[in-house]
């Protein structure tokens, strides 16, 4: 099973990486271009992503694969209203208190938007640009993974008190 997980995710990554390079797909760029110039090209891609994923989850729920699809779940106490879908460590988790969850989501959401615009693209786009040979994007990706390692001992102690 572990081989299937690795090979499956690697294959999916290759497909979306290839398509992302050809199309310039970028979620942050889509919203930014729409705000700046009403350009819908990339925003349409992000909207198509949500629509396709919604249709896919709906199909999976219909064939009975995912019974707990929260969009249609009426299970009481399952956290339907604010199900954070678990659970990168230290981040907003579904079993957190409401205030902690809201504060972390506000800080994280605002930070992702702000710094991604300043870096000129979402993480997915930066990976694609790094593969094209953009040295700035390579530096971005290195910082990105350095933060993943450093999060546990730099950031987690700070937010554990929130």
């Amino acid at each position: 099973m572990s081989v299937i997980i690795s090979a499956g995710t690697l294959g999916i990554g290759i497909i979306i990486g290839y398509m992302g390079q050809r199309s310039g797909f970028c979620t942050i760029g889509g919203i930014r271009n729409f705000i700046l110039t009403m350009d819908m090209r990339l925003l349409k891609g992000a909207a198509a992503f949500i629509a396709a994923a919604f249709a896919g989850f709906l199909f999976a729920a219909l064939i009975g694969y995912q019974q707990d699809f929260p969009a249609f779940s009426s299970a009481e106490g399952s956290g339907t209203l604010y199900n954070a879908c678990t659970n990168p460590y230290g981040g907003a988790e579904h079993n957190d208190g409401l205030w902690r969850m809201l504060i972390l989501t506000i800080a994280g959401g605002f930070g992702v938007g702000l710094f991604s615009v300043m870096a000129n693209g979402c993480p997915f786009r930066q990976h694609v640009k790094a593969s094209e040979g953009d040295t700035g994007a390579v530096a971005y990706v290195l910082g990105f993974y350095f933060a993943a390692v450093a999060f546990g001992f730099l950031i987690k102690p700070i937010i554990s008190g929130v």
């Binding site: 990168p88 230290g90 989501t105 994280g108 992702v112 990105f144 933060a147 999060f151």
Partner: peptide, 28 residues
């Protein structure tokens, strides 16, 4: 890159997963 990763881990996902969670019906 450092700041985006820290923010994304607080948010529980990069922008792509944020949109995926919206499609999944996650109000947060």
């Amino acid at each position: 890159g450092f700041l985006v990763m820290v923010s994304a881990l607080l948010l529980a996902g990069c922008p792509l997963r944020l949109l995926l969670r919206i499609a999944y019906g996650d109000m947060l």
